[in-house]
Simulated assay, not measured.
Amino acid sequence: MESDPSPQSLLAALAWQVELGADEAIAETPVDRYALGPASAPAAPRTASADPGPLPVAEETDPVRVARQAAGAAVDLEGLRAAMAAFEGCDLKRGARNLVFSDGDPAARVMIVGEAPGREEDRAGRPFVGRAGQLLDRMFAAIGLSRHEGGLYITNVLPWRPPQNRDPLPEEVAMLMPFVERHVELAAPELLVLMGNISCGALLGRRGITRLRGQWGEALGRPALPMVHPAYLLRNPAAKREAWSDLLSLRARLAG
């Protein structure tokens, strides 16, 4: 009596059948190969195909370029808001509750560019609505400007809240700057107020708000006044004297 075949011999037999083109061990119904004719003959042994070379690498999407195209296509502020809402290049959008686009009078002579929404702004979908926003309203009301009664239009560099209110990352600012630039172009204010360090870095290319504040510069082709953020004034009440001096400078510029 012959012994059972070894696993090695079984594998060799299976490999031989594969080389002959066998691809089924058992069919559902018997097949008469002679009746089918030559067309059903076993396929020729498979041969290794030529090396196709490295697979093509998908082109990486540049979020700054996508943002610039989307912003440039907006013909008005509502179109810009829609373009920002549809923009998927910034991960901050996934963790935010609302898009914080703007508040106030779009036809105002003064446009404030803040930094990024906080918790209250994220909930409300409007910039500067927490304690810092209430202080901002009192500050500008003292020189006759109001987001509610005209004369003041407000936005931020970032429309979505960073987690835990951290500072925006440079790449986040870079990818959203095309929207900021188009926002200023469409609103067409006479003057810009850059509220905080992040805003000065984004629009002036310089940081150090305690040194920059009160010194008029130019951003996006318009006169720009750096001012400390109202949140800073809440932590450092002694700085309100300097903020009042900056407000007087703004009022004089508008009157001049």
Rank of each mutant, 00 (worst) to 15 (best):
L158H: 00
G205I: 08
R241I: 14
Q164T: 04
T29W: 09
R207N: 04
R97P: 07
A239Q: 13
I143N: 00
A107F: 02
D105K: 09
G118F: 01
L212I: 02
V110H: 06
F179Y: 03
A231S: 14
K240L: 15
F128Y: 10
V113F: 06
E172Q: 14
S102G: 10
L212Q: 04
K93W: 11
V193S: 02
L176H: 12
W244D: 12
Q69D: 14
D167W: 12
N156Y: 03
R138G: 08
R131D: 07
F140P: 04
F140S: 01
A85F: 13
E28S: 09
L225A: 08
R251D: 09
M1H: 11
R81Q: 08
E120N: 13
N98V: 08
A116G: 00
L77K: 05
A219H: 09
L158I: 08
G95P: 09
R182A: 01
E242V: 09
A124V: 03
V100A: 01
A82R: 15
A39S: 13
G21W: 13
L186R: 02
A82G: 07
G104A: 10
R46D: 06
V31H: 14
A48Q: 11
M195Q: 14
Q8M: 12
P54N: 12
E171C: 04
L145P: 01
I143G: 01
R119F: 06
